[in-house]
Structures are given as structure tokens and as C-alpha cells.
């Protein structure tokens, strides 16, 4: 059932219940899929076979066909009426294309820039924090140690002396 040009329904995720077409069958149980986005809101993406349910419909498409070719194939097969959706206008197609371009450019910029910045930022913060802790640690324990030493020295002999006196008195 699963081949290039088979129309499928997605069964998992935000695109569950929407239709798509298989463009390529990869190894390890994965599939390349598009709605296209202008027609059925399914992005062009890699998808697991567990998340796809085949339908009896097929479309004549080459392997790795573009979204425009898929739309033309839909028109020939008359699938829009079967899906219960309208044909996407030229504006819708352009919108979808622009959105994909913007995403691609953003992803490229993010890949290039922030990694270098993050590496520089993180070690500085780490260096700055431990210094404060070290200073605090150095300041705090000294007075505590002094306080602890003094009362212990005073109390212990007093208690022991008191005990001794009571014991002696009992005897």
C-alpha cells in the first residue's frame, strides 16, 4: 500500500486527520510527506510510518516532486472535492511558500549565530558565581567556629562539674 503517490491520512500530532501524499519511502520506516501546506495544512516533512494511514486514492507523481506538481496532480485526479476542501488560490500558495522561506532563513541564522554566543556567555557566568560563593564561605564559617568553640569549652566543664557534685552529694 505504501508507495510514491499514495494519498494518506495523518493520525498523530497537530496534523492528525489531515490528508497528505507520500513523496519518498526511506529506510528505517520513515516517509517524506506533503499536504501541500496550502491545500491541507500538512507541512513538507519526514514522517514515521506509524503516524500515517493509507487511503485507496493515488496520484501520479515523480519521486521527490515539488508542491506545485502535487497541486496540479490533485486537480487532475479531482481530489479536492473528495477531501471536502476548496482549491487553494494563488495567494494561499504564495503565503505558504513565503512562510517556509522565512522559516528556512531563521533556522540558518539561528544555527550560525547563537551557538558561538552561548559558548562565550556560559563560562563567564559559571566563573562569576563560584567566586561569590567562595567569598561567602570564607566569611561565614569563621565566626561560627569561634562561637562553637567558646560555649563548648565553657559549658562542658560546668556540666561535668555539676554532675560530679550531685554524684558526690548522693554518695
Amino acid at each position: 500500500m505504501i508507495e510514491v503517490g499514495r494519498v494518506c491520512m495523518k493520525t498523530a500530532g497537530r496534523e492528525a486527520g489531515k490528508f497528505c501524499v507520500i513523496l519518498d519511502v526511506m529506510e528505517d520506516g520513515y516517509v517524506l510527506v506533503t499536504g501541500p501546506k496550502a491545500a491541507t495544512t500538512v507541512k513538507r516533512r519526514k514522517c514515521s510510518l506509524h503516524h500515517v494511514e493509507p487511503t485507496p486514492e493515488t496520484v501520479k507523481i515523480k519521486k521527490n516532486a515539488t508542491d506545485d506538481e502535487v497541486l496540479a496532480a490533485y486537480k487532475q485526479a479531482g481530489l479536492f472535492s473528495k477531501f471536502g476542501t476548496k482549491e487553494p488560490t494563488a495567494k494561499d500558495v504564495e503565503k505558504a511558500k513565503d512562510a517556509e522561506r522565512k522559516r528556512a532563513t531563521k533556522a540558518k541564522e539561528e544555527k550560525a549565530k547563537p551557538k558561538a554566543e552561548k559558548k562565550e556567555d556560559k563560562p563567564e557566568e559559571k566563573k562569576a558565581e563560584p567566586k561569590k560563593e567562595e567569598i561567602k564561605k570564607e566569611e561565614k564559617p569563621k565566626p561560627k567556629a569561634e562561637k562553637k568553640e567558646k560555649p563548648k569549652a565553657e559549658k562542658k566543664p560546668a556540666k561535668s562539674a555539676a554532675k560530679k557534685t550531685t554524684k558526690k552529694a548522693k554518695k
Binding site: M9, K10, T11, A12, A16, G17, E53, T55, P56, E57
Partner: peptide
């Protein structure tokens, strides 16, 4: 359950 529901919907449709 949504997955099962989608599958059954797909079967009924065709």
C-alpha cells in the same frame, strides 16, 4: 485513542 479514532474515521470515509 485519537489515533484509533482517526484510523476508524479514515476507514469509514472510503
Amino acid at each position: 485513542c485519537t489515533k484509533a479514532k482517526m484510523k476508524s474515521k479514515n476507514m469509514e470515509r472510503w
